[in-house]
Structure formats: structure tokens, C-alpha cells
Design a protein around this nucleic acid. Sequence first.
DNA 1: ATGAAAGCGCTAACAC
DNA 2: GTGTTAGCGCTTTCAT
Lengths: 351, 351
Amino acid sequence: MARRRQAVTIKHVAADAGVSLQTVSRVINKEPNVRPEMKLRVQESIDRLGYVPSIAAQRMSGSRSYLILALNDRERTIADWRGRQGTDWVDQMLLGGMLTCAEHGYRMIIELVDTHSDHIERELLGAIAALQPDGVILTPPHSENPLIINLLHDHKISFARIGSLKAGPGFALTMDDERAARLATEHLIDLGHRRIGFIAGPADYELSAWRVDGWRASMAAAGLETAGLLAQGDFSFASGKQAANHLLDQDAPPSAIVASNDQMALATLEVGRERGIEVPRDLSLISFDDTPIVRFTHPSLTAVVQPIAEVAARAVELIIADQAGREVPDTPIVVPATLVLRNSAAPPRSD
Amino acid sequence: MARRRQAVTIKHVAADAGVSLQTVSRVINKEPNVRPEMKLRVQESIDRLGYVPSIAAQRMSGSRSYLILALNDRERTIADWRGRQGTDWVDQMLLGGMLTCAEHGYRMIIELVDTHSDHIERELLGAIAALQPDGVILTPPHSENPLIINLLHDHKISFARIGSLKAGPGFALTMDDERAARLATEHLIDLGHRRIGFIAGPADYELSAWRVDGWRASMAAAGLETAGLLAQGDFSFASGKQAANHLLDQDAPPSAIVASNDQMALATLEVGRERGIEVPRDLSLISFDDTPIVRFTHPSLTAVVQPIAEVAARAVELIIADQAGREVPDTPIVVPATLVLRNSAAPPRSD
DNA sequence: ATGAAAGCGCTAACAC
DNA sequence: GTGTTAGCGCTTTCAT
């Protein structure tokens, strides 16, 4: 409504310090070719006047926008928010990403995009045109979407791909899902389990396959069968119930199950309850994600912890380093997941 | 790094449609004085070219920034994120706020500010200067902070105060905490409780007092004592334990307790467990907030549900309406909290 | 109803 | 090392 102009502009600072706009600009952007005393004088004026550069104006004249976009899947994110099941993926992204942004004078903006929509391109172009972000963070299931990757690459926008191993444009960051699945599986093997079931995530998440790979690898290394022990889920509670029932309906049901996410683990817990199977006495259970609620279920769940905040922080650092023209590694950054032991995994019943 | 210019600008559209910049601008901003046919022609060019206005440029020339800032308390928000206790305040703000923003072509940016710091003013001015937001949403405990309110008012920025009843600059929105506390208290009274304890929140949150008021009012209306039944907490788990112990140490301990937030309710539950007091058999418990975890505790908690998403959505609508010069109500918007019954409240033991 | 010109705050390119 | 100039993409005036 109100005609709002910047109260203190670079002009005011320049006048106050008795220098040219350019010199002020140089000080702001920490550019060379300013005598220390000049720099000091300008900085004093800036502080005294409380001057803060306008991002819009900076962006207009072709410099950075100091904005980093974090892309998340619209459908799933909204469903998580609505469902209020404690999924704190976005919060952890903000914790790691936003705080790291702030350290460098950047801001992070959460942006939701449709996975399956064909106007994903239009959506993204719209966001880019409107905001002109300096960088973009891709999260599963978008991290290896060729449409998005090419678009970002063509626009010469720095971007990070969380949950990806692929080389190519953009920085890959991974929590090493394959290793995480091995961690979980091996823990169960160590406890004495021989038949360990696995509930997989949906195929449009690359990490789903990696987790299955990890489980397969551990089983193979221990000389254990996997036939009939893999069930397909889609990360939803309903699919988890179906998968758990499928596994437990077998003639030789598993004595332990690893679920690819918390919702499906919760579903497995409920299926157990329905069937009179007690966890962990009759069935051991390990989940992926370690969202808050799994600490409050009965029993609390042994789980794979995803270091989302840490990964988001690293992603932001990579983008900013790239923006600054600094060298960035071109191999995937690995921030390994860990296993937290709680009360849902125990040795199998010796019957 | 890369010199990134807008791919498609208003100029391209103007050229493509064979009209002046001004006409395109008018179409974009839905201004009057454009013949329908012109409008159509321009719109076609816009669609074909995939043109999206640059927020930075719009902002530069003195119009809106289409940015709304959601201010949250830095310390508490970060603690919540780190603690991973399932607090989903920010998520619910995003759910209601961001989606409503999107409907109107706005974006929401989460901003953290220090409550107690004296550079709160500098911080806020910095955010305003850098981002030039069209609106700001204040959340407790900032909703009635005179420093912030005056600053925003002086800058003629539309703002909403969530969890406030005060008239004055900015739009007040409330979940009617007083009524919510009555709801909880009366439910316990209806169950037959006579001695109902209350664990209050910290004084720097206005809503803390309102909740106490509600409890007092209900108790008084039912002719019940409140002496010795009020304990002070600060929303932390630790303070909740202390408060619960204090209440239960009395000669005539309460048979029911209302806690001003989930953490303190959880703490009360734990204190009960430590003292061999079973909920709800020996002690009924109602919590405020209804964050995800209280559905998974044993027993699950009867709780006051805060319609945060709804309030955030309304706040955004008010700001946008104000921006558009539309009339906005100057009385507080009330989005009442509700009570969800679970398993932590039952009739008192008849001993 | 439409167009032309001026300028928003800042930086890049080029002078000095 | 520092200043000057010319835009960036858009919305305001103000003409027509």
C-alpha cells in the first residue's frame, strides 16, 4: 500500500562518508582496491546509519540475490504437515540450511513442487524468474530428475542434490542409504536373526533401491536367504500394513523386519499388535528416518538416523562456495546415517 | 557467479504483443484501463513466452515485494528443531501461511529473531531493508512487543499479531486461550474432578496469563478452590517436572492437572510414572498444543488443539487484503482452539 | 485507453 | 585506489 522506499540507501552512506557510491559498494561486497582507512570510514557510516543493502537492488544490477531455494515434493510435504505425524524433514532442512544461510548473509526459501506434474518445468521456471535464486537444493524424489537438473544447469544456477550419488551437474550429497541399510541389517544379524524381512520404499525414490541393495548385501555376506523376504511399500502407513502382513503371512515369516521409513515401521508395529505378535519378543523391528514419534511408541524404535540438518548445511555451503567461485569437490559428499538403538530389536525367540 | 539476466522480460512480452511496456504492466497487475482484447493479446504473449515478473524489479520500482515474513523466536525455534520432540509449530505456520501466500502469488519467508536481545531492532530493520517484505506475521512471544510493533508501524508495513487481543496497529488474531483453558478445565470438572491443578507457561508469553485466567474462571464458576493448585513452568520439560512435583507434593494433591503445553504435560506424565501414579487412573492430565507425539504417548493425551495453520492462513489473508487496500476488520480475529479427547482424562478415583 | 519518460538502489564497466 | 556512467526490469508519473 504505502510507497515504501529504502530509508537508508547506498547514496546516504556515500554522502555521509564523503566517498563515491562505488567505494561503498566495494566495501559492502568486500572487494579489493579499497584503502583500509577508506574501508573503515565507510564501515563506520554504514553502522551509524544502520544501512543494509537491498537484496532486490543488488539482484537488479546483476549481482547475487542471496536467496537459496529448497525444493520439496509438494504432495508429500503437505500430506506430512496435514497428517501431523511428527515428520520433521522440513524442520531439519531449515535447521541446517537456514542457519547456515544466515551465517553467510543468505536466506533460504522453501518451495514446493509437484513431482508428477508436467508443468513442473513451468513451476520451476516461474520460481526462478520471480526469485532469481543463487542456488537450489534438490531433495528426494527430485534429486535426480533430469528435467530439473537440465533446467538448472541451463540457467547456470548452482544446485545441490540431496540423496544422490550421480556425478554430473550439481553437487551430490548422500547419507549413504546403502550403508545405512547394512547397518540395520547387520545389527539384526548380530542379534542372531536369520530371516530378516525388508519393506522397500517407492521406486521413484532412488534411495529406495539403495536401501534394498544394502539389505541384500548384508544378507548375502552372512549367507542368508532373501527370497520372499522383500515387500514393496510406498512410504505410507497403509502400504506398510499391507507389506507387513504380506511378510508375516509367509510359511516361514521373518523374525525381524527393516522398514524403509517410520510410517511403515509404525504400521508394522500395529500389524504386530493386531496379530498378537509382540515387538521385540516375537519380532524385531528397525525403522528408517528416526522422526520424533518413534521415541514415544511402545516399544520405542531402534532406527536409522538421517542427518538431514547436517546434509542441508553442507549443501548450502557448497552452493555458496560455488557462488563465490571457490573450488568445490565433484565427488559426492557423504554424511553417513547412524543407527540409534532403542527397544524394538532384540535376539530372536529361541523356539 | 554467472551473469544471470532475466530470460524473458516485460520488454519481450511488449514487443511480442505489439504494445507498450505499460500495457503489459497493467495486465500483469490487473489494473483497469485495458481493453479486454488487448488484455487477451498480452496474456497470450505472456503465456507463450512463459514470462514471469521479476520480484526484484517489481520491488525496485516501488511496488510490492510479494514477500511476507513470519517472525519466530530464534532460541525456542532452534531448540525445538534440535530437540526433535515433534513440535510442529513452524510446519503448521508453513502449511497455513505458505499455501495461502502461494494462492495470491506471495511467498513466505521464515525469519528468526531474538526475544531478549537489544539488537532485535537492528535485526528486524536489517530484514526489512534487505527483503522489503509487504507484510510481517508476529508470533508469541513477540506478538505484543512494543518495540517491534512500533517499528513495523513506522515503516508502514502491514502486520498480523498471532496470539494477541490488543487493538492498535496490526491485526490481532487469537485462538482464545482463555476459552481453551476453560474447555479443558470444564471437561475435568464434568468428569467429577474437584482439585484441578494448573501448570502455567512463562510470563513473557501473554497467552500464559490467559490460560491461567480461563482455568481460574472455570474453577470459580464451579465453586472450586484454586489455592495451592497453580504451579509455574516455562514450557520446558524440566520446568514441567518441577511444577508437577510441586503440585503432587501437596497435602491434598490435585486429581487432575492441566499443563500449558505438551512438554510440561509429558513431564507430568513422567513424574507420575516416577511416583507410581497412573494416568488416568490416579491422575487425569490435559495438555495444550497437541503436537504429534502426544498421540503416541501412553496413555495418549487429551489435549487442546491449536489451529495454527488456520490462524496463519487468516493472518496472511489479512495482510494481503490490507495490501490490496481492502477493508480489514479492526477487532481481533478469533479462531477457537478445540479439545480432542484421548486417554489421559478420566473420572477421579472414588477413594 | 494507451504510451513515453523518469527513476527505484545497486553494480559492472570503464575512466581517471 | 577511486569516481563516473550506464543500465538491470519494472512501475510510477504524466502526456496523449
